[in-house]
Amino acid sequence: CADLAGRTEVSKCKKADTDDCAASFAWKDESSGLARLCFGPEDGETKCSDTEVEGCLPPPSPPPSSPPPLTCNDLAGRTEIPDKSCRKADSGDCSSFFKWKDAASGVARLCHGPEPGSSKCSGQLVSGCALPSVPPFAPPPTPPPPSAPPPLTCSDLAGRVEINKCKKADSEACHDYYEVKDAAKHKYKLCYAEEGESKCVRMKSITCLPTNAPTTIV
């Protein structure tokens, strides 16, 4: 059975490569450890011959090749999974995910796989990693407040038309109207338009000298 090591399994020794008979073998009953070791060809033969040996164990399978070790460079472009384990990541795309074990210390778990015989992703710890750079969130600029209209004075009273209430004035021509608060005391309220309002508004009353007071009441 010691001669079984390193040989390649064939279905029958007669079908083995005649230039390399000694490198082949065939199982007669693998469960019982009964094998046929190929040799030859013998003189006058054109095919390999065989001899039976028993009590043999199947030759060990070569270990699966290990993937290259992951490093912090493999963190770029990955998406952090909300779960603690890589086993919860999408098994169809393991290498697209990672999970911080200790972000402050730069220790991350990179997902990979699935490994042979497994249906879920595995994880490998790497250390010394920097947090992926994320552009800081910039809130939209705050629009400037609407500019306030210049303060109205008694000089703005000239040429205006008296109205009972400023809000009843034509909203397209608010500046053409005014209210009378107390004619005897020459107190008036000038109408004006204000942003965001659909009707004219009025300012606080101002006291005007008789020379500025309107002479015509409509």
Rank of each mutant, 00 (worst) to 15 (best):
K28P: 00
L37S: 13
T79A: 11
C38M: 13
P59S: 14
P149D: 14
S147R: 13
P135M: 04
V53W: 02
P59T: 14
H112W: 13
K84N: 09
I81N: 02
G44F: 08
G128I: 00
E80V: 07
G77P: 03
P116R: 09
S31E: 15
A35P: 15
I81F: 04
A108N: 04
N73E: 14
T71C: 02
P135F: 05
S119A: 13
E115L: 08
S96D: 06
E115S: 08
V126A: 05
F97C: 01
S95Y: 01
G106M: 06
I81A: 02
F98W: 02
T79H: 08
S133D: 09
V53Q: 08
V107C: 00
R78Y: 06
L34G: 01
D83W: 00
F97M: 01
F137L: 13
A103M: 07
P150Y: 03
S122R: 03
S65N: 04
R78G: 07
G92M: 01
S32L: 14
G44A: 11
G77K: 07
K47L: 12
A76G: 06
T46W: 05
P62L: 10
L70Q: 07
S127M: 03
K120F: 14
K28F: 08
I81D: 02
E54R: 12
R36F: 14
G92I: 03
P59Q: 12
G77L: 06
G128N: 02
S85K: 11
N73W: 00
S127D: 11
P69D: 02
A89T: 10
T46L: 09
D29G: 07
P60E: 12
G128V: 00
C56N: 06
P135T: 11
P59K: 14
S85D: 12
D93C: 04
S95F: 03
K84H: 06
A89R: 04
D43Y: 12
A138F: 02
A138R: 09
C86R: 05
K101A: 04
S118P: 00
P149Y: 14
F137D: 08
G128F: 01
C48N: 10
S127H: 03
S61N: 05
L34K: 15
K120S: 11
D90C: 04
L57G: 07
Q124S: 14
S32F: 09
S66L: 10
C72S: 05
D43H: 10
D74L: 00
A89H: 05
P41R: 08
S95I: 04
L57T: 10
C48V: 10
F98T: 06
F98E: 03
P145K: 15
P150Q: 15
I81H: 07
K99M: 06
P135D: 10
S66M: 06
P140F: 04
P143S: 09
G113I: 10
